[in-house]
Design a protein around this nucleic acid. Structure first.
Lengths: 334, 334
DNA sequence: TTGAAAGCGGTACCAG
DNA sequence: CTGGTACCGCTTTCAA
């Protein structure tokens, strides 16, 4: 194994100089730096992570807590993770994956063992039970999602309330007077997942202030779930002409079911989706959608963690404004 | 921060004794062990990962290399990862996520910096360019997938060749004489992804030996892709009555497209899928399928890595036998 | 059965 | 601008 001492000897300098060349924490003459860098390359030197962590109290690792068994949409989770890994590498950090079901003990373990410098938490619930633990960790934490009481924890997410309103506004402006919300699965609501409630509130409030008839309905992620959900919606309000879908997993089945019922999109019914852009663009009909900006949010989460690592910063909650893009699935009410 | 010295003092023993209580590497009197364990709990002690890694050359971290931007099916990748995390935790290890696009340099970095003890690699190509690097790492490596020349690397995967044959056999036994394969996207073939070729070979060989007319066709993961693919298949062989789908991403669109064409499943055409069980069970028709045993494979990969860490073992390639489960999508040819 | 102490490979302070 | 060196917290050998 190549150590810093080997590099130092080869370059004819002291180990501390090599360390400083690497960290840039003090000025080095151009020629010394060059010799050191050449030795590093020649020997293929990579600093030992454990030694570095021990001496500097920095692991250069970010822990990301994700839900594996869940009704959250898997591809969406994956996009967050991919963005986080990218951003982390851009800051010379690696990503450690933590399963949500390790619970608070897992968080304490990672913090107490100094396995990671900061923690990014996904799948945040409205009444998030991990908040106290997270606060006690004394480490930078970023939540993707916003609990009802963040208590000074830093959060970042799409502004789901505004997103709900944006969907309603779009349909209202197209003349629709009776709309429905195909929401996340009942399990998501039951768990009190934060974005579900926020979106629902935005949807409901906007519908009320626009005086639209609105029928929100949870939807289990299966063909029967979709059928049951649409049955219920149409039973409640047969005049529905606009549907908002806040459930990525059922987009395909829903469009398929609508076709089955002889309802054409957008001629008979307009559909607005809340989902990542690529999903909106690859359905059987290109969907008017509010994008879930997974890449931005994942990247921002990492940036915010990095900022906290760099020094004390005031906690903040960043809600990204929704952007609705009209595609082929919505039209003026006829 | 609580250190081993704090625990030792509290328990009235030496640090080495605490260390041995933790590792179990030498016998400790019952009462000493008890005192130490109590102190550990009382103080909430967790060994510092960096220090431990430095002293023992063991990080208790497994690196998992996954493809983020790819045509591989995301949920499938996620299932492998989830299984790996579970299995790793069962061995007191954590999982570090590495993006495939970091390439060989990323692998070298992780190995040389001693960030992880072993590496699990997904999305293996037939002509896998990472094999030489992996061999040079001098660390336990497990491939999920089988390259043409593993050169002594340990591999684990579903036996895709046998899976291809199993699908053909099933259809043949139901009396089908003209079958097609809706394969992975052209990009997957282009990249030479190992399982794609192995499955195709199994499919083709079995069809030939059974004297079936067989039409394999790649399929882009989109509605137009599916339509084009089916168009081509039916143009090539209008008498197709059995379709094998080796492309999880298009299952929904394909079933939807078939319905659109007035082809009933299984009355007019039988469909066999290759996908994780849960996917087969949640389509509009419950699909006869060969399961991709993501949980088993992910877990096995970790076990095999652990075994290598425990001591020298002969390299091996484990191909799990396919298991075909008949559901509602296949029927005797009429 | 237990303790003392020498590293593991960096970092960063103190000197010069 | 550079070097020497005392830690960082744990593991493990050597001794008792």
């Amino acid at each position: 194994m190549v150590t810093i001492v080997d590099v130092a000897r080869t370059a004819g300098v002291s180990p501390s100089t090599v360390s400083y060349v690497l960290s840039g924490k003090r000025s080095i003459s151009a020629e010394t730096r060059l010799r050191v860098e050449q030795s590093i390359r020649k020997l293929g030197y990579h600093p030992n992570a454990g030694a570095r962590a021990l001496a500097s109290s920095r692991t250069n690792v970010l822990a990301v807590v994700i839900p594996f068994r869940t009704d959250l949409n898997v591809p969406v989770v994956m996009q967050f993770v991919a963005a986080a890994v990218d951003a982390a590498r851009a800051h010379d950090h690696d990503v450690l994956l933590l399963a949500k079901d390790e619970g608070p003990a897992g968080l304490r373990r990672v913090a107490a063992s100094a396995i990671a410098d900061a923690i990014i938490v996904m799948d945040v619930e409205a009444d998030e039970p991990r908040v106290p633990v997270l606060l006690a960790l004394q480490r930078p934490v970023v939540l993707i999602g916003v609990p009802d009481h963040p208590q000074g924890l830093t959060c970042v997410d799409l502004d789901f309330a505004a997103a709900g309103a944006a969907c309603v506004d779009h349909l209202a402006e197209l003349g629709h007077r009776s709309i429905a919300l195909v929401g996340p699965s009942p399990a998501v609501y039951r768990r009190g997942t934060s974005y579900a409630g926020r979106f629902l509130r935005g949807f409901t409030d906007a519908a009320r202030s626009r005086r639209l008839r609105a029928t929100p309905m949870p939807c289990a992620p299966s063909y029967e779930g979709v059928r049951a959900c649409l049955d219920q919606i149409l039973a409640t309000d047969p005049n529905v002409t606009g549907i908002v879908v806040h459930n990525e997993a059922v987009l395909g089945p829903l469009l398929s079911d609508l076709r089955h019922r002889g309802l054409r999109v957008p001629d008979d019914v307009s559909v607005v989706a809340v989902c990542p852009e690529d999903m909106a663009e690859t359905q059987s009909v290109e969907l008017t959608s509010v994008a879930i900006p997974t890449t931005e949010v994942g990247g921002l989460a990492v940036e915010m963690a990095m900022r906290q690592l760099a020094g004390p910063v005031a906690s903040e909650t960043r809600l990204l404004s929704p952007r609705l893009v009209q595609r082929a699935s919505t039209a003026r009410r006829r």
